[in-house]
Structures are given as C-alpha cells and as structure tokens.
C-alpha cells in the first residue's frame, strides 16, 4: 500500500550545521506515529520541512505517493497535509467560530467569494458548529481568540487543522504548556480522531506518546536513532540513555 507520508533521505543544513540528517520515514495510512527526541533533535525542523516552511537541502517528501518536495506550503495544505504549531499560530481578533468557518471555506474552495455573505452555505455553519462542539469549544465560540484561556487556544489550534479534513495531520507538541486537566481533554480529542487520518505526533510528554502511538521514531541530532513499537522503544537501552535518562520522564 502507498504510504500516506514518506520521507526519503531528507537532509537540511544551515551553513555547516546539519539539523536534519538523512531522515527516511514512512507512515502507513491511518497510522498513529510519534516522533520523540531531546531538545534540539530537529523535530520542529522536520515539521517545517514537511509543510514547506523550509526547503530541504536534499531528499524527497511524498504525500500519498505524490512528490511534494517542491510544493509551496499552501498547496501542501490543499493536498490534505495539515499541521498544528508548537507555539500557537491563531488569529487573535477572530472568534473561534470565524476562524473555523474561514478554514472550512478555504477547504471547500469558496474562500475567494467576495460577493456573497458568510452564511450563504448553511452546511459550512453546521460543520463549523459541530467541530467546535466536538472539541468543547462550543460555549466560547463567540469570544475573540486572544481572550480565551490558553488550554482553549490549544484546542482551537487543533480545531483549525481538523477543519481542513486532513488525510495527514502533524501535531507539533499539542500538549505544550497545558495543565494536567487540559491535557486529559486534549488526549480525549486526539484519541477520538477519525481512524483514517494519519497522524504524526511530536511531543515531550511520554505518557501521551506511549498511550497514543502505534509506532515511535526517536530522533537524535537530526538523525533517526531507532524506530519501532512503544514497547521496543521503552526497552531500548540507547533510547533510555539519550532520551529517557536525560529527561527523567521514565
């Protein structure tokens, strides 16, 4: 079967500094994959390469068998590759409802309409409302985003990505900075993602990663150290040494 997302010998260097080193990774459709690694391992760089914010020095990226290495970020999003950001990238003045409606309009290819109102398609509204309800954002959907508590903003970050109905979803530290209760909400949300969506989760939170992922890739110094199911990763002495030992999560 064609992998949903495939990286082939992906390398990125800034000057002499190699931050992504010959990374090859393949995600099957519907797979729950996690990417872990100590700080500075190049996790976010990898997300930026996948989404086209950065151009790789060499290597290829394929989305459902299609080469997207050269494609601009917005075209990748249109092909069904959505992401969330480690640091919230939201719209401070828009309400969650407006932001989600905007994303849905974009996905449906009607965001260039300038002559009709926002409510012409009832289906867009219904979809936005259902999505916000599902993520527990229904009751605050009319408040400006910048006035929402941080945990809600984190959820909106995910809601925006989901509004694109992605085939592949990249979650860049979704739990970064959220409280324990909020973290539980977040996990419930992630666990309830539709099974056909392929997910690449990047996080520090070992609990989250080991509960969520079917396979885990450990990235160290920009290169893949080891890859395998959670039990194997947890038992791997090298991983314990470079990651678990250093982070004292284990």
């Amino acid at each position: 079967m064609t992998p949903a997302l495939e990286m082939r010998r992906l390398t990125k260097s800034f000057g002499g500094l190699v931050v992504t080193n010959n990374v090859s990774l393949s995600l099957a459709p519907g797979e729950r994959h996690a990417l872990i690694g100590p700080n500075g391992a190049g996790k976010t760089t990898l997300v930026n390469l996948l989404t086209g914010v950065l151009a790789p020095s060499s290597g290829e990226i394929l989305l459902h068998g299609e080469h997207i290495t050269e494609k601009r970020p917005y075209l990748r999003a249109r092909l069904g590759l959505a992401r969330t950001f480690q640091v919230n990238q939201l719209f401070p003045l828009l309400t969650p409802l407006e932001a989600v409606v905007m994303a849905i309009l974009q996905r449906r290819g009607i965001a260039t309409r300038w002559w009709s109102g926002l409510t012409r398609d009832r289906a867009v509204l219904d979809e936005a409302w259902a999505l916000l309800e599902r993520l527990g954002l229904g009751d605050c959907r009319h408040e400006p985003t910048r006035e929402l508590p941080y945990g809600r903003q984190r959820l909106l970050e995910i809601a925006l990505a989901l509004a694109l109905q992605p085939r592949v979803l990249l979650l860049d530290e979704p739990a970064a900075g959220v409280s324990e209760t909020e973290g539980r909400d977040l996990f419930t949300t992630l666990a309830a993602l539709p099974p056909e969506v392929t997910v690449l989760l990047i996080d520090h939170d070992m609990d989250l990663v080991f509960r969520f992922a079917e396979r885990i890739t450990v990235l160290v110094g920009g290169a893949v150290l080891v890859q395998g199911p959670p039990q194997q990763i947890a038992a791997d002495p090298r991983v314990r040494e470079v990651y678990l030992g250093a982070e004292s999560h284990g």
Partner: peptide
C-alpha cells in the same frame, strides 16, 4: 482578516 491576523497560519490552512 485572517491574513492580517496571521499570514503564516493562513498559508498552513491552504490560502
């Protein structure tokens, strides 16, 4: 308005 608020996110949304 989205672009004014966050152009980077807009392009991640496919705009």
């Amino acid at each position: 308005r989205g672009i004014k608020g966050n152009p980077r996110r807009m392009s991640a949304l496919g705009t």
